[in-house]
Design a protein around this nucleic acid. Sequence first.
DNA 1: TGAGATAATGTACACGCGATCATTTCTTGT
DNA 2: ACAAGAAATGATCGCGTGTACATTATCTCA
Lengths: 346, 346
Amino acid sequence: MTIVRRIDVANLAGVSEATVSRVFNNVKPLREETKQKVLEAARQLNYQPNALAQSFATGKSGNIGVIVPYLPKVNIISTHYFSEILGGIGMMLAKNNYNLLLIFQSPQEPKNYIQLFNSQKFDGCIILGAKDVPGEKEEIDMLHQLSHPYCLVNQTFEGYSFHSIDAEHYKGSFDAVSLLLKKGFRKIAFLNGPSEYSNSTERLKGYQDALTSFGIELHSEWIFRGNYSRTSGYQVAGEMALMMDHIDAVFAANDRMAIGLMQGLNQHGYTVGRDYALIGYDDSDVTTMVQPQLSSVHVPLFEMGKRAAEVVLNAILKGHTKPFQENLPVTLIERDSTNHLMEEMA
Amino acid sequence: MTIVRRIDVANLAGVSEATVSRVFNNVKPLREETKQKVLEAARQLNYQPNALAQSFATGKSGNIGVIVPYLPKVNIISTHYFSEILGGIGMMLAKNNYNLLLIFQSPQEPKNYIQLFNSQKFDGCIILGAKDVPGEKEEIDMLHQLSHPYCLVNQTFEGYSFHSIDAEHYKGSFDAVSLLLKKGFRKIAFLNGPSEYSNSTERLKGYQDALTSFGIELHSEWIFRGNYSRTSGYQVAGEMALMMDHIDAVFAANDRMAIGLMQGLNQHGYTVGRDYALIGYDDSDVTTMVQPQLSSVHVPLFEMGKRAAEVVLNAILKGHTKPFQENLPVTLIERDSTNHLMEEMA
DNA sequence: TGAGATAATGTACACGCGATCATTTCTTGT
DNA sequence: ACAAGAAATGATCGCGTGTACATTATCTCA
């Protein structure tokens, strides 16, 4: 049960090592007869080229690194958000015979993307959950300067033209708030996520512009902040409950916070539909599991993952190097949480 | 901007290549002075050992393959189940400086785990979502015979002693149904998953034994089958609605089906708490997002992933080879969906 | 102080493959 | 039948590292 090498196949087939290599790499010219002879020998010996040696010889690992933030207690992978993107990436890579190397990155430890590239563990990388904080921006900038194949997902940096796939969060936010306004709500609170994420700030702009476009004055006390977890939404409900007399609708920056908020406000006696309207973001599967079903903004996360993988593969395989930015469209999904209770009863 | 190699560091530090290698691999004996000289040279040149070459030289990739079933349309990763396990695996691997190679496996294409091992892309593998179907069993058996480091998660095979980490699904099921029985329910239906999964059949046994231990006759028409998706639960609701006069409680083999069923039965005018009790399985985050909150059986999926990774790492690093099977404990979590409505109102 | 032991460092090769270049075999046209 | 070109195949090297073995420097103890 030792490892079968190219030379073993060559000996059995009565050809040279180079010919075996040619058969497996489909390098022409090559006599069909020889090819069959080699394949038959390979089959008999159950030969499988050593991917490690191949990688070493070519200098290509055949892996794409996907960098995912890792928080010791919180299982970040389990959120709809990351899972969808990861699925999209996986699909595209599988189609192109690339492997997906999942790399968990602790927030505290310094980002060393360059070292990761130098180690040749992967040929390109996709960075999920990047944040606009000092250390990170510079590191990505260095990746960019050295023209390593990479792509950010759902994060852009003001003043830099990094490769990235994002979604139209400004529009999504604007549309969401506009829906509430069209429905007649006027006192609209906004539960946003951390400002290190560019899409948080984009959503804030969309929220503000929608209100002002309807001639409504902005109130800073209408703006709340969570960390995208359900728990944080639940906690914010405590603050918000104190001023529900001055709020008739809430736009939350993701579904999980929306649901946490909904549950928290329930505890304080405020019900969606009767006391306020609610709209989430991401259109995750939980939107249809709650009562009333949650209106939300669909974000093509799976597609975004696919596109990000495509961008990185194009950089690797076709040498594409010019800055690439793309914003995929989002879709407003209207469900019951943005309706008045009387409409339901009608 | 060319690649810095060991020899470059050696030249700058005025030592041999072997010494540089020794410094980086911490091979003694070694003079402290020499070590510092080499490290300083490496720092100046920004030297990073080539992981590809290291892997090739040692014959170890440093990767653990995680094999995940891939269904073109359905994004399997996004389910609580896989995400949690994956997170646990990732945690343990990161701690041991191993990388996680995610491998999507289409159900239709033949399983060739042996080839994957021969290709040396990974040093060990963890198989998620294995099914008890003809081709698969033999392939895993071969892995086992060749004593390749591997571990199954949440799947066992009758008559084989494959390495596996599972949970006490018989007990979980028994406890869940017993809870319903203690609450006074007697006409208890069971919405199970596909029988290719060993935990489906284990749960069936638990369900049956719980009923018979209470002296209740088994009714084959009480048993329904879905595929673990919410949609399948929703569809089953159509059948079940026809016989809700003869059912007062339902045990579902996972939360998603439970919620689908709940929504489907709602459409037919049957409400949890008023018309029937419901208990799910997995204790996923959606249990607390629905109304009433769903009783469920907590399965330590994250922990299971951790343990599976540990088993594989032990096989690789310490040569552990004897059959390893472990069943982690499950916990019954009682919420509102197993209470009668009148209790809530009291 | 010198010999033997031991610590420290250097030399050289293998790992399995891709790929270049050299060589042999085959084809074609007259 | 033969030359010239094309097609097919063979010999060989390099990729960057780990490591066995050879060599040299240092220490120890009488």
